[in-house]
């Protein structure tokens, strides 16, 4: 592709970056090539449209603030350790940021509600808050949250609802404990579940404008993702 001088001048004028002498030069060239005026008008319009759209899209940046990390570590050498049982270490730069807005979690909330609605019958019945902390009627006394989670995992595995727990954990925040002796960490535990759902939507395609297109998968024997 070859740029003629007039193309270059049109580009600068459409950008509003032309000098007075460049504008004069354009006017002289455009007298011999009147279509240049049309080209300029079209480019100016498209530049204006694109600027408006970029400005709107980039407006997202105005609400994104830096995450609050209590003690930001710097450099490659400092690692935060999560999960003694896995021994995995994760550099701080791989941490997920804090959500800037409650709506960031809305997708998860919706998904959780849907799953809860479908799978409610598979979950243990609610017995009341007072019994949860001192439940000794079951096989496993639940004195702590870990006990309760373990009971859920065990029951879920028995029911076929829980496939397992992802061994690595996603670190959100860490800070050294006062007086040394370790770190306080905030992290995400990921539990893999299996459910039967009546419909599955896939977003693996895009339309001509790059927007995701939802495709409902057909349930066929032997087919899977």
């Amino acid at each position: 592709m070859h740029e003629s001088r007039i193309d270059s001048l049109i580009g600068r004028a459409a950008d509003g970056a032309e000098s007075a002498s460049e504008w004069s030069e354009f006017c002289v060239l455009a007298e011999r090539q009147p279509s240049a005026w049309r080209d300029l008008a079209i480019q100016q319009r498209e530049a204006r449209l694109l600027s408006a759209s970029v400005d709107r899209a980039v407006g997202a940046a105005d609400v994104v603030e830096l995450p609050h990390v209590s003690h930001p570590f710097q450099g490659e050498g400092v690692l935060a350790r999560v999960g003694a049982e896995t021994g995995r270490e994760r550099p701080l730069h791989q941490m997920r940021p804090e959500p800037s807005h409650p709506t960031r979690w809305m997708g998860w909330v919706v998904a959780a509600c849907v799953v809860a609605a479908w799978g409610f019958s598979a979950l243990p019945r609610q017995r009341g808050a007072e019994t949860a902390a001192m439940n000794t009627a079951g096989l496993v006394p639940m004195q702590t949250a870990d006990d309760a989670l373990q009971a859920y995992l065990d029951r879920g595995r028995a029911d076929g609802v829980v496939v397992g727990e992802v061994p690595s954990k996603m670190l959100l925040e860490s800070r050294p404990l006062d007086g040394g002796g370790g770190f306080e960490v905030v992290f995400v535990r990921q539990i893999v579940e299996r459910r039967n759902v009546p419909a599955l939507i896939e977003f693996s395609q895009a339309d001509e404008f790059g927007r995701p297109v939802a495709v409902q998968l057909e349930a066929r024997r032997g087919s899977s993702l």
Binding site: A57, P67, G75, P97
Partner: peptide, 23 residues
Amino acid sequence: PASADLEDLLQEVATILVARVGD
């Protein structure tokens, strides 16, 4: 990618900035 959320990616960059600005 066209379908990616710009705000999510900005958060990712912001997090790396906090953690690695010393680099």
